[in-house]
């Protein structure tokens, strides 16, 4: 018995001293997710991903708990109270998708002062003691033009479909597209409509503006609007331009059908709801003592010609393409930000 204990002790010592072995240090740490809203398919997918990856991490002994909490009303004061409850419950890290970038700062400061690691993602917070995993929407716009430049070296006319007017995300993606056009001046935006990230709105808007437009070689979008644009252009009897898609199931389905029919090629990109699991791993890495910059950027989930079939098969009808992140992914995101 004694020898066995000694052997075990030696093994544990080796495990601890082995470089890059993260498991042992966070095995007793508990992580909580504070979520402000669960009322749409993106958030539902986010919570499902969290549960899947979190349960696995607990099972593997990487962390002791990964519990998800959602406030019943989408209100900052309620979420602040929820975070304070988590401090009381003794969590070691709190991962937050915040109802407000500023109104939770007091509660988050309390958590930091209690020695808790706070990681915010998607809905990020401005409190300096928290980590932020932000979405670079500008880059999302710019990359679309970059992709089109690769496909169409001679440039051409672009139609831009924007999101909901007056919303931060819409402004950011639009600014990124402008940036891309400035970078590749052979492209010219000849028309711009608001599709409100919805297929039916986008279809109507595009159908309305098409008759006044010259020939279009590309359509830049914000996600949720690509399928509607394709329908409108088809109905008008025009040649199909390259429509950049946004990972929605109906968009990918249409793309796969067009590919089978005439070899249609394009790119699809958006943010995966699984980004919550990236935040989970980042929190785990911080708890593990890794040096992590306070501001990180979410990688986009890109669907290309090669990954289309695989992604489409994995995406439920009416949903969004998703990916769950691993500890390795978190490490590479952290390394990229350094």
């Amino acid at each position: 018995m004694n020898t066995k204990a000694k052997l075990l002790g030696a093994a544990a010592l080796v495990a601890v001293t082995l470089p890059g072995h993260a498991v042992a240090d966070t095995a007793d740490k508990r992580i909580a997710l504070s979520n402000n809203y669960a009322g749409n398919s993106w958030r539902q997918a986010m919570l499902e991903s969290w549960a899947k990856v979190g349960d696995k991490a607990v099972e593997d002994g990487v962390v002791a708990a990964a519990d998800a909490f959602t406030t019943s009303e989408n209100q900052a004061t309620e979420q602040a109270a929820q975070i304070q409850n988590m401090i009381l419950q003794g969590y070691d890290a709190i991962v937050v998708n915040a109802a407000s970038p500023t109104a939770l700062n007091g509660a988050i400061k309390e958590a930091c002062d209690a020695g808790i690691t706070v990681v915010s993602f998607d809905g990020i917070v401005t409190e300096p003691c928290a980590w932020r995993i932000a979405v670079d929407f500008k880059e999302m716009g710019r990359q679309q033009v970059e992709y089109l430049a690769g496909r169409l070296p001679d440039g051409g006319n672009l139609l831009e479909i924007r999101g909901l007017a007056g919303v931060f995300v819409d402004d950011e993606i639009h600014a990124g597209i402008e940036e891309g056009v400035a970078e590749f001046p052979k492209f010219k935006i000849v028309g711009s409509v608001h599709g409100d990230w919805a297929q039916d709105v986008a279809q109507k808007a595009v159908a309305g503006v098409l008759p006044s437009l010259p020939e279009i070689s590309g359509v830049v979008t914000q996600g949720g609007d690509g399928y509607g644009a394709a329908q409108a252009i088809k109905a008008a009897g025009r040649d199909m331009p390259i429509i950049v898609m946004g990972n929605r199931q109906d968009e990918m389905k249409w793309w796969a059908e067009a590919r089978d029919e005439n070899g249609y090629e394009t790119l699809s990109l958006s943010i995966a709801p699984g980004v919550g699991t990236l935040a989970l791993w980042v929190a785990q890495q911080v708890l593990d003592g890794a040096e992590v910059p306070k501001d990180l950027t979410v990688p986009f989930l890109k669907v290309t010609q090669d990954t289309l079939d695989e992604t489409l098969a994995a995406t439920p009808e009416g949903s969004v393409a998703n990916v769950e992140y691993s500890q390795e992914d978190a490490k590479s995101v952290i390394a990229a930000a350094k």
């Binding site: 009303e73 004061t77 602040a80 500023t102 109104a103 509660a107």
Partner: peptide
């Protein structure tokens, strides 16, 4: 008092009150 606790504000901060 609310701002004293949250450190900053939001136009919808207290709707449930």
């Amino acid at each position: 008092c609310l701002v004293g606790l949250t450190t900053s504000a939001d136009a919808n901060i207290a709707l449930r009150y």
